[in-house]
Amino acid sequence: MSELTRIVLIGATGLIGRAVMEQAVNRADIHLVAIARREVPLPKGARMEMLLSDTGHWPDAIAAARPDTAVITLGTTIKTVGGDKAAFRAVDHDLVLECAAAAKAAGARQLIVVSSVGAELGSKNFYLSVKGEVEDKLAKLHFDRLDLLRPGLLRGRREGPARPAERIGMIISPLADLLMQGRFRQYRSVKDADLARVILALAGAKQRGHFIHHHDEFRRILGAG
């Protein structure tokens, strides 16, 4: 019988968070606790906990979850926050780091974070520079194991109004992906369900270290070549 892994999911209402909950259904080897600001419908057949509170109390909720593994799928866009860079950093930088630190304090040995392809500390692109800065600071928290996922375009059905650029991107992504070869393969798109399966496959991994995963590593983990 597999050892039970306690997972705390932070960012349960987003595209990837919801996909993780769906993929966790019927997984007897994990105990999933999701943390969110508002209630969301649970997948049919889900056997999990959901803790609801404002973000100011998330550290307490994370502590209550007693996680072995923390999964952070938080993220917004510059457009969503009306171009307000401070508002963007408040979520993608401040809240991510606060939750990661809380998970460390709660005893989590592993942290899995959804970042972005191209994340780089000091990048001229604001979005990518923030992602890179966060990755750098997460490494300094010294989890036994840190898994940073750097997907390209995320494909799936989001809540709320459709983002025109993303909608167009999802339409053309199958063809665009084929054109991305060599070092550009890392920019290929990934389905929300596939990334969720990668997250759950990594959860509970015993090998220590700092790992960065791109598209080809996702495919290897999923056994898709």
Rank of each mutant, 00 (worst) to 15 (best):
Q207M: 13
W58S: 01
A63P: 02
R47E: 15
T55C: 08
E39N: 14
A224C: 13
R38I: 07
G56R: 06
A102I: 09
R163S: 11
F126Y: 12
E120N: 12
S189V: 08
L149W: 01
G223R: 11
A100W: 04
T5P: 06
S129G: 13
F126D: 10
P161D: 15
I221K: 01
A46Q: 10
M21P: 01
D192Y: 07
D92G: 09
S115E: 09
G225L: 12
D68T: 05
Q23Y: 00
V96D: 07
H213C: 06
L9N: 09
R37F: 07
I35S: 05
I7L: 13
G56I: 07
L51R: 12
K191R: 15
G75Q: 09
W58D: 04
E159T: 13
E39H: 14
V134K: 04
T77P: 05
V190M: 08
H93C: 11
V33N: 08
T13K: 05
E22G: 11
P151M: 12
R47C: 11
V130Q: 04
P43I: 09
S189Y: 04
F184T: 14
K191G: 11
V20F: 00
Q181K: 13
P151L: 02
I212G: 05
L178R: 15
V130L: 03
L202S: 01
G75C: 03
L74S: 02
M50V: 14
V71M: 03
K79R: 14
D68P: 01
K131F: 03
E49A: 14
G56D: 13
F88R: 01
S123V: 11
E3D: 15
L149R: 00
L128Q: 10
V117K: 10
V33G: 03
T76P: 00
G204Y: 02
L146V: 04
R219N: 06
G209C: 09
L148W: 11
G45D: 06
A64H: 08
R47W: 09
V190A: 04
E159C: 10
A224E: 15
D192M: 05
M180K: 02
R183H: 11
L175P: 08
D94L: 10
L148G: 04
Q181D: 01
A65K: 01
L175I: 15
F143D: 08
I212V: 15
T76D: 07
R145A: 12
F211K: 06
K131E: 10
V190E: 00
H214C: 05
H142L: 07
G160S: 10
H214N: 12
S189P: 11
P43E: 09
K124G: 15
A64G: 08
G204M: 09
R185K: 12
G169W: 01
L95Q: 13
